[in-house]
Amino acid sequence: MSIHFPETNWFKAPTGGERVWIGLALAWCVVLTLAMPYWHFKGKQNSTGESYRVAPADFMARTEKFVGTNKVGELKGVPVVQPAPGGDAYLVAMMWKFYPVLKLKKDQTYRLHVSSLDLQHGFSLQPMNMNFQILPGYDHVLTITPTISGEYSLICNEFCGFGHHTMASKILVED
């Protein structure tokens, strides 16, 4: 019984169904363990965690420079910025907005730098449903290639104070 003392010689190898089950479970765990790196190298969507330390003010300065050279318009008062295909793009999260609105070209690859000026925020692209963490002090580099054109919503999905549920923006992808 589980609540009583076991017989003195309780140590014995598993037998019967128990043995089969442990074998199957172990084999399955081994398969999944190997699948982890396999998926990483074979898969097309990974979070590599590429990131660099950056002071919030520096990141903001880089973003302003990026906006200054690549601005193509405005949407609801927020600059719309089109990075050079294959180039770097910057996105800042702050309570409670994203800056700027990005306009990307389909099938081009970008290095998207995201960081925060204040609290932790979330990068949640909808309706694609792709989610990444944004931390202040870290330049998180997402290497992305949009494959479907259209207008996407970007929402914050890390609690960032009482305005959290109003924090949203757009990412535009054109052909």
């Binding site: 008062g77 949640s124 449903n129 919503s153 929402i155 890390e158 959290h164 549920h165 109003t166 949203a168």
Partner: peptide, 17 residues
């Protein structure tokens, strides 16, 4: 479907976008 946790408003009322 992408609905965030820890989030008060699915409708994003008061949001810019």
């Amino acid at each position: 479907y992408g609905v965030p946790r820890r989030h008060w408003d699915l409708e994003f009322t008061g949001s810019q976008f």
